Amino acid sequence: MTTITLEAATQMIAATTAYGVEHGLKPLSVIVLDAGGHPIAFARANDTSPARYAIAHGKAYGAVMMGMSGTTLNTMAKERPEFITALNTALGGTVVPVQGGVLVKGADGKVIGAMGVTGDTSENDADAGQAGVIAAGFTPEI
């Protein structure tokens, strides 16, 4: 099974933040988690708030723990808020069910981790994360 190396995580973060700069997004904070939800790498742009780590982590953690994108989790939050509340309780209040939680899949289509992006609109965060995952040679699910 493919895993995300520190080098690949760093490449994903660099490409994600570069996308943000190229598209005029607000400063981004980005985290990459492995398939078990453990942080591999995190970076934040200058002048971002300290809360951005927790938000990025929550987006990625929810995605990898459930095996579904932040977009899907956001839809579930709207359609089944009681489930997302229960999920968040079970996971210690760490899930942020919005776009910007990007699943990372290997060549075989299996989930190998997730990226959490925050700083701009959730839609723009997801687009930036998608670009970062692709740049590292993996398949994103936003």
Rank of each mutant, 00 (worst) to 15 (best):
V95G: 06
L87F: 13
R52C: 14
K59I: 07
A51M: 12
K78Q: 06
V30S: 05
I31M: 05
A15P: 00
I142P: 02
K105L: 10
A131P: 00
G62E: 06
T85I: 12
A9V: 05
V21E: 15
T85V: 13
A90N: 15
A86P: 01
A35F: 00
V32I: 12
A90Y: 15
V104S: 02
G109E: 00
G62R: 10
R80G: 00
P97M: 04
G92N: 02
G119Q: 02
A51S: 15
N74M: 10
A60M: 14
A86F: 05
L103Y: 03
G58Q: 15
Q130I: 15
N124V: 00
T94P: 02
L87A: 13
T3M: 04
A86N: 13
G100D: 05
E82A: 12
A77S: 14
T121F: 10
A126D: 11
G132L: 06
A45N: 13
L73E: 04
P97T: 01
M68A: 04
V102Q: 08
I142A: 14
N88D: 13
P81M: 01
G58N: 14
I142E: 11
A131I: 02
G132M: 10
M66I: 14
Q130F: 09
A43D: 12
T94W: 11
T3D: 03
P97V: 13
D125A: 08
T85E: 15
A131F: 06
A60Q: 11
M66G: 14
V64F: 11
F42R: 08
D108P: 02
G137Y: 02
D127V: 08
Y19K: 07
V133G: 05
M65T: 15
T85P: 01
A136V: 04
T118S: 14
L28W: 03
N74F: 03
